[in-house]
Design a protein around this nucleic acid. Structure first.
Length: 421
RNA sequence: GGAGGGGUGGCUGAGCGGUUUAAAGCGGCGGUCUUGAAAACCGUUGUAGGGCAACCUACCGGGGGUUCGAAUCCCUCCCCCUCCGCCA
C-alpha cells in the first residue's frame, strides 16, 4: 500500500509508474476525495475540541451545583454534528482505503521498462546445460518408470493438480527440504515453522488480499485462508510491531506447504509437477533498514542461487520488467533452472524487494537509535527454493539412458543412496 | 463442546461516568554526586493524523451504542488464561 499523503503529493509520478506497469487506474477521483476528507477532518477535530473543553466546564458547574442545561443542550447539537461528519468521513475513508489497497507498488528505477514477460532481461547465467547422447525425458515419464510420483492416484484422492510422492520420490522431496534448510540456516537465517492457515489481516498485510482472493483457497467455517507461500505467515510475524534498529536485518527461512487455486491457468502445465495446487517450498524472508534493502536483495538472490550451484543445476537469473512484476514488488529477480525434458529454463525462485509496501500495509516499523519517531522497514523474500520444481530439475538433469536417476552429490547424505532405480 | 476469569503505555499494575491532560512501580534516557561504577536524588519517557511552529485530534483488544462527557455503563465480535469433557 502507498501512503495517502505520498499519493496526494506525487500524483504525476504515480501516473507514470502505473503506465509502466500496465495498470489502468483512474487517479482523478482520489484527489477530490482526499480534499473532502481533509476538510471534514479539520471540521470534526475543531468540534471535538469545543466539546472537550465545554464538557469539562459542565462538569465543574455541576460539582458547584450550578445549572448547565443551556450548555448541555448546545453540546448535544455539537455531538450530533460530529456524528454526522464522522459518518461521511467513514464513507470516504472506505473509498480511499480500498483505492490505496488496489494500487500496485512503484518499480525501482533500475527495473527495465517493458510490457510483458517477453521483455524481461537476463542478468547472468550459471552452468552449462548437459548434452545428452539420448533424448532426455520429461520428469513425469522418468517418475512413472521409477514409480516415485503417482499423478493418477493424486487425482483420485484429491483432484487434478495433486500428486502422491512415493518411495525415493518422497525421500527426495524430504532430502531437498533438509538440504535447503541446512544451507539457509548456516547463512544466518533463523528457521521458522509457521501456521499454514492464516486470517484475513495477514493476507492483507502481504498484499494477497483484497485483490487476489480468486487465487487463494479458503476455509469457510471458521474462516481461514491457506497460505500460497510462507511469505505470508513469516512476514506477518512482525505485523503491528516496532522493531529496534539493532535487531535489523532479520533473516528467516521457513519450509511450508503452499496452496494455490491456479485459477485461469487451465491448459498450462497440465502434466507433471510444475503447477500443483499443493506444493512444498522453502522460503527466505528479510526485514531490513531502507538503505540496506537493495544490497540485501542481491545477497538473498545469491543465497537462493547457491542451492542450485550446490546441486550442480544450470540456471539463469532474469530481472522482471515493469509489465511482468508482481503487485507488491518494487524489484524482482526470477531464477530459472534448466529443464532438459522441456528444453528450456523454468522459474524455480522469485526474489523480491517490496521496499515499504508490505511494511505499510502490515504496519511493521523500526526506531532508529537516538532518533525520534519511527520508519517502516523494508521487507524482502524469495524462494530458496520451490521444492517440487527442484525435484523436477534433479530428475530431468540427472537422468540416465537406462531410466535411472543419479543422486546429486550434495543430496547423498540425505538420500542414503547414489542412484534412484 | 460445557463452566468460570481476564485483555490498560516497553513490562508489572491501579482506575470502574467529570481534579486522569491514564496513578504508582520497574525498565529506558538525561543530569547531580563519584577517580570510575553502583546506590541515592532530580528531571524525562508512547503511536498516528492534521497544521508541520505553538497547538489540536484520536488511540485503555476490534466494532457499534447510551451520555453534554466513556478506560469506566450497554450490545457484539476477537483473543488469552483456569477447570471439566473429547482428542492427535
Amino acid at each position: 500500500m502507498l501512503d495517502a499523503r505520498f499519493v496526494r503529493e506525487n500524483i504525476n509520478m504515480l501516473k507514470k509508474a502505473l503506465e509502466k506497469r500496465n495498470y489502468d487506474i483512474d487517479l482523478s477521483g482520489f484527489l477530490s476525495l482526499e480534499e473532502e476528507r481533509l476538510a471534514l477532518l479539520k471540521e470534526t477535530e475543531e468540534l471535538r475540541n469545543k466539546r472537550n473543553t465545554v464538557s469539562e466546564e459542565i462538569g465543574k458547574m455541576k460539582r458547584q451545583g450550578l445549572n448547565a442545561d443551556a450548555l448541555v443542550a448546545e453540546m448535544k447539537g455539537v455531538s450530533d454534528r460530529i456524528k454526522e461528519i464522522d459518518e461521511k468521513l467513514k464513507g470516504i475513508e472506505e473509498k480511499t482505503g480500498q483505492f490505496l489497497l488496489n494500487i500496485p507498488n512503484i518499480p525501482h528505477e533500475s527495473v527495465p521498462v517493458g510490457k510483458d514477460e517477453t521483455e524481461n532481461v537476463e542478468v547472468r547465467k550459471w552452468g552449462e546445460p548437459r548434452t545428452f547422447d539420448f533424448t532426455p525425458l520429461n520428469h513425469w515419464d522418468i517418475a512413472e518408470t521409477l514409480d516415485i510420483i503417482d499423478f493418477e492416484r493424486g487425482a483420485k484422492i484429491a483432484g487434478a493438480r495433486f500428486a502422491v510422492m512415493k518411495g525415493a520420490g518422497a525421500r527426495l522431496e524430504r532430502a531437498l527440504m533438509n538440504l535447503m534448510l541446512d544451507m539457509n540456516t548456516s547463512k544466518g537465517y533463523k528457521e521458522i515453522f509457521p501456521p499454514i492457515l492464516v486470517n484475513r489481516e495477514s493476507m492483507t498485510g502481504t498484499g494477497q488480499l483484497p485483490k487476489f482472493e480468486a487465487e487463494l483457497f479458503r476455509v469457510a467455517d471458521p474462516e481461514f485462508y491457506l497460505i500460497p507461500t510462507a511469505e505470508v505467515p513469516v512476514t506477518n510475524i512482525h505485523r503491528d510491531e516496532i522493531l529496534r534498529e539493532e535487531q535489523l536485518p532479520i533473516y528467516y527461512t521457513a519450509y511450508t506447504p503452499c496452496f494455490r487455486r491456479e485459477a485461469g491457468s487451465y491448459g498450462k502445465d497440465v502434466r507433471g509437477l510444475i503447477r500443483q495446487h499443493q506444493f512444498n517450498k522453502v522460503e527466505l524472508v528479510k526485514f531490513t533498514r531502507p538503505e540496506d534493502s537493495y544490497n540485501e536483495l542481491e545477497k538473498l538472490t545469491a543465497d537462493a542461487e547457491a542451492i542450485l550451484q550446490k546441486l550442480q543445476l544450470p540456471y539463469r537469473v532474469i530481472v522482471l520488467c515493469t509489465g511482468d512484476m508482481g503487485f507488491s514488488s518494487a524489484k524482482t529477480y526470477d531464477i530459472e533452472v534448466w529443464l532438459p525434458g522441456q528444453n528450456r529454463y523454468r522459474e524455480i525462485s522469485s526474489c523480491s524487494n517490496f521496499e515499504d509496501f508490505q511494511a505499510r500495509r502490515a504496519n511493521i516499523r523500526f526506531k532508529r537509535e537516538g532518533k525520534k519517531g519511527t520508519e517502516f522497514v523494508h521487507t524482502l523474500n524469495g524462494s530458496g527454493l520451490a521444492i517440487g520444481r527442484t525435484l523436477v530439475a534433479v530428475l530431468e538433469n540427472y537422468q540416465q539412458k537406462d531410466g535411472t536417476v543419479v543422486v546429486p552429490e550434495a543430496l547423498r547424505p540425505y538420500m542414503g543412496i547414489d542412484v534412484i532405480k
